[in-house]
Write a protein that binds this DNA or RNA. Structure first.
Length: 427
RNA sequence: GGAGAGAUGGCUGAGUGGUCGAAAGCACCGGAUUCGAAAUCCGGCGUACGGUUUUACCGUACCAAGGGUUCGAAUCCCUUUCUCUCCGCCA
């Protein structure tokens, strides 16, 4: 959520910056709502003040045993107008809040301006794609030839967009998760957390999935939601909290499954495990002081990159343009891993700075200490990034580490997690 | 799943219709005292929103959440959520 004060002060500038991400802000509607809000709020609060004053006098009169009927009839005369005003005020506040909840974040000055993913800017490329002496197979063929990957059975059990892994491949999936968590906790200073996979609507609102993107989520019959990313439960840890400044920054990492309905993606990436209803992800989340958040974004992106580097997977870093960043983000880097069979780079991590956008929705604050005195609570900045999407990392390994004989070499860093296994072969 | 008890400021906790945004204690901050500290004393100390002559004052709202009764609700009524105790069940 944006700061309503900013909209009041600088509406045209806000509208311009939002236009750069393809969002049209209805400034006329905002101005009309605001004008109405101001008038009704002032009038209603005046009436409330009058009522409170008179009621106090009634109490005092009764306490002294005096007659209060004149006062009571005067305040009685206010009640209808007051009730009407309170209802209209509540109505307009709700309209305004609904309006605000549907406005995306402002892109940061360093976010490239552009319309869609074609305008994203490549920041750097790391690693050299391997030369194949033959046409490399995609991960589906590699996995199915080894009889370690089984989509038809997953479809029978559940539906399309689910995967079944067996044997050493299932173990590699687990090994990847352990390797990522160990790297972030032991080398990058994150605290590991285990979190609920179901969350309530308040949490979904806090991080920005609701109210706008309900159709992307799986909703349960009791009103809860399956998490689409660990970002939701982990970030909401600080919802409605005031963090002591000495605890900042807070760096958390969690491994969770993620559930996405993938509504609106019919026909896209239907082959293989690129786009699934259920996938595992290791997610990093940081809570930092506002002035530190852009340094933290670079650092966090580096932490995700470190995983790709240790796995020796070629990738590139893309700065998403204003038209392509997510609803809540001010700046996002995507990491794209090289997939030889598709002869292209595919997203494997997304690292974003949300500035105070999520914090304002969540009322997540910290109390600074200035000159030894505790200051007013201030909104924190929140960041998160995948470190990494486990399923897609597995896809990248199957494709990049495949051998002409159909086997797959196990990357060095994963071997300790797999009992020293060096190759995936038919079992 | 059954029975009962509860939810008040950073914490403990008083408050069952009227100067209650809320006693008191603790914690914290400032000052006095002191060579310094402890102790003691004095004062301050919630959040959000709005207004204005914009760092200061005024107003409104907030005692788990939502609704109701009333001139007036922390207090009475209804609904929901959560916590605790006991029983049952379960990994």
């Amino acid at each position: 959520m944006l700061d309503i004060q900013l909209l009041r002060k600088d509406l045209t500038n806000v509208a311009q910056r939002l236009a750069s991400r393809g969002f049209t802000l209805d400034t006329a509607a905002i101005e009309a709502l605001e004008a109405e809000r101001k008038e009704i709020q002032t009038r209603t609060q005046d009436l409330q003040a009058r009522r409170n004053q008179l009621s106090k006098q009634i109490g005092m009169a009764k306490g002294k045993g005096e007659d209060a009927t004149a006062l009571m009839s005067e305040v009685g005369g206010l009640s209808e107008e007051l009730k009407l005003g309170e209802e209209r005020l509540a109505g307009i506040q709700e309209d305004l809040a609904g309006f605000m909840m549907n406005i995306p974040n402002l892109p940061h000055a360093s976010t490239p301006v552009g319309k869609d993913e074609k305008d994203n800017v490549e920041v750097r490329r790391v690693g050299t794609p391997r030369e194949f002496a033959y046409e490399p197979l995609d991960h589906v063929d590699v996995g199915e030839n080894l009889e370690l990957l089984d989509f038809p059975t997953a479809t029978k059990i559940a539906s399309s967009r689910f995967a079944l892994m067996r044997g050493s491949l299932a173990r590699m999936h687990r090994a990847l998760t352990q390797f990522m968590l160990d790297t972030h906790t032991l080398e990058h200073g994150y605290e590991e957390v285990y979190v609920p996979y179901l969350v309530n609507a308040d949490s979904m609102r806090g991080t920005g999935q609701l109210p706008k993107f309900e159709e992307d989520l799986f909703k349960l019959s009791n009103g809860m939601y399956l998490i689409p990313t660990a970002e939701v439960p982990v970030t909401n840890i600080v919802r409605d909290e005031i963090i002591p400044v000495e605890n900042m920054p807070i760096k958390l990492v969690a491994h969770t499954p993620c559930f996405r309905s993938e509504a609106g993606s019919y026909g896209r990436d239907t082959r293989g495990m690129i786009r699934q209803h259920q996938f595992d992800k290791v997610e990093m989340v940081q809570f930092v002081r506002p002035e530190d958040s852009y340094d933290a974004l670079e650092e966090l992106t580096g932490h995700a990159e470190a995983i790709l580097q240790k796995l020796d997977l070629p990738y590139r870093v893309m700065a998403l343009c204003s038209g392509d960043i997510g609803f809540s983000s001010a700046k996002t880097y995507d990491l794209e891993v090289w997939l030889p069979a598709q002869n292209t780079y595919r997203e494997i991590s997304s690292c974003s700075n949300f500035e105070a956008f999520q914090a304002r929705r969540m009322q997540a604050r910290f109390r600074d200490v200035k000159d030894g005195k505790a200051g007013k609570p201030e909104l924190i900045h929140t960041l998160n990034g995948s470190g990494l999407a486990v399923g897609r990392t597995l896809v990248a390994i199957l494709e990049n580490y495949q051998n002409p004989d159909g086997s797959v070499t196990v990357p060095d860093v994963l071997r300790p997690y797999m009992g020293g296994l060096t190759q995936l072969v038919k079992e």
